[in-house]
Every structure is written in C-alpha cells, then in structure tokens.
Design a binder for these strands. Sequence first.
DNA 1: AACAAGGGTTTAG
DNA 2: TCATCTAAACCCTTGTT
Length: 373
Amino acid sequence: MISNGKPRAIIAVDLDYFYAQCEEVRNPEIQGKPVVICVYSGRREDSGAVSTANYIARNLGIKSGMPIAFAKRILKGTSDAVFLPVDLGYYQAVSERVMEIIKVGSEKFEQTSIDEAFMDVSSQCHTGFDGAIEIARSVKNEIFSLEKLTSSVGIAQNKLMGKMAVDSNKPNGFTVIKPGEEALFLSRLPVGKLFGVGPKTESKLKAIQVRTIGELSLTNEHKLTEIFGKNLGRTLNRWANGIDDSPVKERPMEQLSRIVTLKTDSASFDFQEVIRSLSYDLESKLRSSKLMCRSVGIIAITTSLKAKSRSKNLQSPTQSGGLIFAISADLFAQFFQENAASGEQQRLRRAGVKISDFMSETDPEPRTLEQFF
DNA sequence: AACAAGGGTTTAG
DNA sequence: TCATCTAAACCCTTGTT
C-alpha cells in the first residue's frame, strides 16, 4: 500500500534549533535565556532578519525571518535576552562532526541541510522496525554525548514519513510511524502541515475545499495536476497518501550562489566591487570542490523585494572568479539598461551571483551523466 | 517529440 | 514595526533539432 519495492526503514535526524544550540554549547552562560541568532544586513543598526532562535525565545513569539528590530521590541522587557550574529563557520564545523556520526551509523546517508540528514538502515535490520529504532536511539545518544546537542528523530518507511515524524515532535523528539500507521498519522492534519505545502499551495487547496491531508489524499490526481502541473500534482497526491519511493542518496551540489544586501538601494551598477568579491568567493568554493561551472547568473532583489534574475551559459566551463565577475557585470549592465528602457527605473536592494552546470575539473563529462547509482 | 536556454515561483531551513 | 541568505524543485515560454 505504501511502497512497491521492499519495505525500508528510514531515520530522519534533525538537530534542534541548530545555530542557537551551537551557541549554547559554546557558551553555557546563555542557557536558560532567550537566544536569537541574527543575520545583520549592515544597512543600519539592527537592520536584518532573525535566522533562528532557541525555544525559550520562540515561546515568547520570536520567529525565523522576522526583522531583528521587531524581535528586539518583543523582548524589550526581557532583560536576559541574548542576540548574536550568525557564525556560520562555527556551525559548519559542528555540523561536519555530527554528520560523520550519523554517516558511519548508516548504510545509506543523505544530508539535506546543515542540520538535517536521512539514514536508510533497511539492510541493517532484517528484524524490521525494532532494529531501526535501536539505531536511531544510539545515534541520538551519541550526538548528545559527543557534542552535547539534542536532536529530534523520526523513524518510518520512507523519507517523507520520516520527515513528517520528526516535525511532529520537537525539540528532543523521538517519533516512530510504524508501517501501516501512515494514513492514521496524516489524515487529520491540516494540509499545510504536509511537507512541501507552503502558504501558496495551501490557499490554492483551500479554494477547492481541501483542508486536511486526508482530504488531499482523496482528491483526484487529474484535478491536482491541472492546478499544480504534472509533477507537483502527482507528488502532492502521493505524499498525501504517505507514498514516497525516493531513495536515500547523497546528491551532488547543483548550484552555488552568493547574495548581499547593498548599503543603499541602487539604480545603476555602482556596486561592482561587491560583485567582484562574491565572484572570487565562488571561485574559491569551486576550487575547493574541484569543479568548474558552465553557467553564470545574477540575482537581483528590488526595493519592493521582487526577485529578478539573468543568466548566461558559457561556451566553455570556467573556474575563474575574474570571468564570473565579467559575465555578472555584463548581466547587471544589461539589466539596468533594460530597466531604464522600460521606464521602470527599479532600484535594487540586494544583489548576487549564481553559478551552476558544474562539471569536474578534470573530467570533461557533464555532471548530469553520472547521476546513475 | 525531445531538449536546451532563460526566467519566474515556491518551499525549506 | 521591517523584510537574511542558500539551495532545490518545479513551472512556463521560446527556440532548436
């Protein structure tokens, strides 16, 4: 009913309020206080957004993505609140050690973000689910004893249900969805709780009277593909039924981007030096990954926060920051020119560079051909 | 019909 | 109220093979 192949045992691991918890481990003084991790844009004092916060802060109303100034206002009367800037290098180092713990415990491993990973332990537990539960418990314990970090885990037959399990019980959760329990777990939940269903999708579903995952599971797939397109429609229908055959597999990186908030909104390409440094930053990432790219693009966020992009495929792959910069500069020049011509005169708030279409430094074969197994 | 290029949207963490 | 940064998946249009 749920899977067509052999039954699997999948564990989803999610490190709790990761950035904030890293800071608590580094400086135990702040434990027990509201901790808010901020991305400062550098425009003005306190301009920027909240990246994440510990549960003490969340329970006071702090949400990820919220303006820092708003968060400070909420915690105005809370004298022990701690606001810290993101220290991504530190979190990355912690993450790498934790991921190693998870990786060695699993036959198949897939990291999906800095603080999340899947394990496929099917081959390690012929006994069925009890074996998977044991492995999950030991990984969770090991992460805590070695790094002093709490995590939440979800155990189920596939990645989707593993993810649904983890998300249902945080922080420090341990949730099992046994084979056959999927429909019971999903059916009463509001459709917005289904992984992949955000505010836009939720409101489109509301328009056709679909409010719960159970209702979505009964919705004609054809109707869904009409509204959401072929792929998404089918996926929504399958996910609402707890069906997910996607393998646990490490995926090669497909794109790299760097974007910054400009000191002041700009109506012309007067931020070349910023773009140059982003370009060289991308070069160093390419070098350390031993990759070249065949596509270069720019990202532009207007004053009204609309995203725009331009991109260009290269004749031959490159690793050069100089070339990435030159192409980006062209694309920005072209963007502002079109902008002026159309009489729009949109100003940019944020600007960035994106590269993609990677191939190995040595191997002339494009990455897409080595997708198999 | 299948594929590439280019641009936009949505989601997630 | 003010509104970061990174990455993936998908959608659509247009043009070529």
